[in-house]
Write a protein that binds this DNA or RNA. Structure first.
Lengths: 209, 209
DNA sequence: GTCTATAGGGGGATAGAC
DNA sequence: GTCTATCCCCCTATAGAC
């Protein structure tokens, strides 16, 4: 993969090529470490065009940030609010989709968390996350399981934490984990694929503990 | 907690006060977003003193980074290499110590992972992580469990990933999780304390899945 | 050792030609 | 719409007084 991945994609508009480049660089380095010149170079064009299309680095970033977070949450919200799937089916779907999605852009989780940390939660105010999750079918189904004695842990948030942790954490810690396990990129990917199968089983086992 | 937490600690040397301030600010904002002026202000002193004691922002950062990572790994290495504890005791010890340690400085895991991401693994070369973990008593004990059929998952790294994920992830994602669960600081802390008790049980259950 | 003042450079933004 | 050249502020680092 060349550094200027977009420059040789003549079918994209200039604006789209900037956004693709910005997305890549912001995800890789974060807002503060990214220079507008980096983005221009990655897009294979001049720096002035960024300001022509997006006014400022900050405005460009806000768009990327919003689209990244939205794309990330959307999937989960959809799966979690399907009335026609069981809790375990939701877990399987969520695990499968997220491991695929994150494998395509492995830097996204760390990017989101580091950028949210800085802006002191101001960004989070814009998204109705509380409702989207807490009032989801997923949570209701989990609570039903608790009432029926089929899940020991009474707090749905603990359950959600565990699920997210098992799926997302390996990607956030991948440089460390690769070093510890002396893994090549390919081997790491294989492990993540293997987790698609295992996480639902682990989750099921945890319910009874 | 005042912003200039160190300025009213006359028992510390200037150098120590700078390091305390730098540690706090770097952990909170990361290397790139941190300005030397921020550190000077946090330390309640003049900017020029940073260069007097540490030559440059980068050198100061390297010290903080090293001490942070070392402090973080040391504990785990100790627990994991104790010949006189069982695997489950190691899990309990590790969970207990890390939840306490991270609760005191919750930004550390995210700080480490974001900074490691940028420097392209150059930093990780300095630490013999591969040996420290892969050749640990912990891993040997796990492999024995696998041989005895008491653990289904054959890969020790998958096991380690799960353990770290359950302990560390909630802290890395805390802004998001607090928003989702509509939690105050205190409630979040209570959940983490609760996890000290639960994670060892969950881990035990996962072994059989 | 600690301060004030300032040098020096990098990076975001824009003017203006084409 | 896209480029080159340049402005100007902010940040790191240092000189020099005390």
């Amino acid at each position: 993969m060349s550094k200027k991945a977009n420059s040789n994609q003549p079918d994209l508009s200039t604006e789209e090529r900037i956004k693709l480049a910005a997305r890549a660089v912001f995800h890789r380095k974060g807002y503060s470490a990214t220079k507008t010149r980096d983005i221009a170079e990655e897009a294979g064009m001049n720096l002035a065009l960024l300001n022509y299309y997006f006014r400022s680095k900050e405005k460009l970033f806000e768009q990327i940030m919003f689209e990244t977070v939205f794309g990330f949450m959307q999937n989960m919200a959809m799966v979690f609010n399907d009335e026609h799937t069981t809790l375990h089916q939701k877990v399987e779907l969520m695990v499968d989709r997220y491991i695929d999605m994150i494998s395509r852009e492995p830097e996204v989780p760390l990017f989101i968390m580091s950028e949210i940390r800085s802006d002191a939660g101001a960004f989070l105010e814009k998204v109705p996350l509380g409702q989207m999750i807490v009032q989801s079918v997923f949570v209701r189904q989990y609570q039903k399981l608790v009432e029926e004695g089929k899940a020991k842990e009474p707090d749905p948030l603990q359950f959600l934490m565990n699920l997210l942790a098992l799926v997302v954490f390996p990607f956030m810690a991948s440089p460390l984990l690769k070093k510890i396990g002396n893994l090549k990129e390919k081997q790491f990917d294989n492990m993540m694929q293997e987790r698609k199968r295992m996480i639902p089983l682990w989750i099921k086992a945890m319910l009874k503990a």
